[in-house]
Amino acid sequence: MTTNIVEIDQLSFGYKGRLLHQGINMVFPRGKVVAIMGGSGSGKTTLLRLIGGQIKPSKGEVRVAGEVVHQQDRDGIYKLRRKMGMLFQHGALFTDLSVFDNVAFPMRELTDLPESMIRDLVLMKLNAVGLRGAHQFMPTELSGGMARRVALARAIALDPEIIMYDEPFAGLDPISMGVICGLIRSLNDALGATSIIVSHDVKETFLIADYVYFVADGVVAAEGTPNDLMQSTLPFVHQFVHGEKDGPVPFHYPAANYQSELLSQQVD
């Protein structure tokens, strides 16, 4: 057994002729909370999908627990996915099932546990995210923060070794953000799992991450502990961490010369 549960090796991915990633190397050690950060559209979520085997890399490979993901057949990928739990950006709760049934879903689908045991497990998971009292609600009756917590309970339903979070803080109020933040850290340590967080919220991510990768222009632009990165003098990291408007990532989308475009007759 390697100490790194997930390894990304020389990974390139692109579609329709546009390369999104060009030779990315990352390692995710067991038991750690590792964050992948970068601007919108830098392909962070795609990395999670590559780890989950939903898409195949153009070049390079992703290894989960020592196995190359894209070389697996359907059964192999499903076996690997049973080691993973994923929290989607907007929760992705099944809208036709109640909160209880949502959390019970993976247990009912993937195990042969008796219904009484499923009941206890679901209530335990819901208790862990503080929503045991809301088990009879439908997803549409929940606030955004509560829905995210239910989705988190569902993601950890089968005690995964890897928990992936896709923008766990996006669109939450500060209180919910703090709650989720605390949950990610505590669940990781309680389950002995490895957490991979994809986010662009610097403050919360730096608070809980052990290690951070910065992705920009398809490569890992910087990496290190949150402390290292806060001190970083790299212009891109500095701009991102401190939220500056202009810098290496320009305010303007590349365009023709402003003056000449205004003077010309048509937009082409």
């Binding site: 989950g52 939903q54 990928i77 499903y78 076996k79 996915r81 049973r82 993973m84 739990g85 994923m86 989607f88 950006q89 907007h90 992705a92 709760l93 099944f94 809208t95 036709d96 879903f105 993976p106 689908e109 993937l110």
Partner: peptide, 25 residues
């Protein structure tokens, strides 16, 4: 509409990531 919304809200993706085949389920 139901399947389209399940796809748009990533429910199908979530199912797939849980190792549950959305076509079968």
């Amino acid at each position: 509409a139901e399947i389209g919304l399940m796809k748009a809200t990533e429910q199908l993706s979530a199912m797939e990531m849980m190792a549950v085949n959305p076509i079968a389920r």
